[in-house]
């Protein structure tokens, strides 16, 4: 094992560059997923008959498929029906598709956790559905949803590593190029990779825990 060679300044810079891509893709995807997932959850929560059931089937299907398959599919299969995307866009699309479905369920769970009595009270006091959602349900539900949403973001950060299969130049991909040079680099590189993911994700999970404690 050659730790000194593996951790040369040039290599570390190359890794950090990859980490930048990882963060960029993860942050864009989580923002998009939050918006789309929120919209899906609201529609399902309001029980607009046909659309709600349709969304339920789509969400369940996506949630039950491997993300790796969705990434492959987005990049290699969708072009066959005319949907072509560059690598970064494909990675973001695939991650957003998958995470939206995950977040939709978390948000719906949050909405459902609000006591129905409150809704009735709000409605009978003259608020319409949108107002009830906005002033009564969302503020409470959002607070409950923050910890699971942070956990989901951690999953997303880990999941970006799967985009190596479409050669997205993110952290894991760049590490592969480095350890491809010498066998003695493999273990040092994997340790460095694990540490980089760990530091960010553990930090995030501590924030989530703090938020959870505050709520109780």
């Amino acid at each position: 094992m050659d730790f000194a060679g593996a951790y040369s300044a040039g290599h570390l810079k190359f890794l950090l560059k990859g980490f930048g891509v990882t963060l960029e893709v993860a942050i864009i995807s989580i923002i998009l997923s939050f918006i789309i997932g929120g919209a899906i959850a609201t529609v399902r929560y309001s029980r607009i008959t046909f659309i709600s059931s349709l969304l339920a089937v789509i969400v369940e299907t996506i949630r039950n498929l491997p993300l790796l398959l969705i990434i492959f599919f987005t990049y290699f299969a969708l072009p066959e029906i005319g949907l072509k995307m560059p690598i970064t866009a494909a990675a973001i699309t695939a991650l957003t598709l998958f995470e939206s479905a995950m977040l939709a369920e978390i948000i719906r769970g949050g909405l459902n956790s609000i006591d129905k009595g409150q809704i009735e009270a709000a409605r009978s006091s003259g608020l319409n559905f949108i107002q009830t959602l906005r002033y009564i349900i969302l503020p409470q539900a959002l607070r409950r949803m923050v910890p699971p949403i942070v956990s989901q973001f951690i999953s997303l950060l880990k999941d970006t590593s799967l985009a190596v299969v479409i050669a997205l130049p993110e952290l894991t991909h760049n590490a592969q190029i480095i350890y491809g040079q010498k066998n003695s680099y493999v273990i040092p590189m994997l340790i460095m990779l694990a540490l980089m993911y760990f530091i960010v994700n553990f930090g995030l999970s501590q924030i989530a825990r703090r938020l959870e404690l505050k709520r109780v």
Binding site: S161, L190, Y197
Partner: peptide, 15 residues
């Protein structure tokens, strides 16, 4: 919990 499963896999396969 905080590292990708892919990296654990690479560790067992290549590492």
């Amino acid at each position: 919990r905080n590292i990708p499963v892919l990296i654990i896999t690479f560790f067992f396969y290549f590492g």
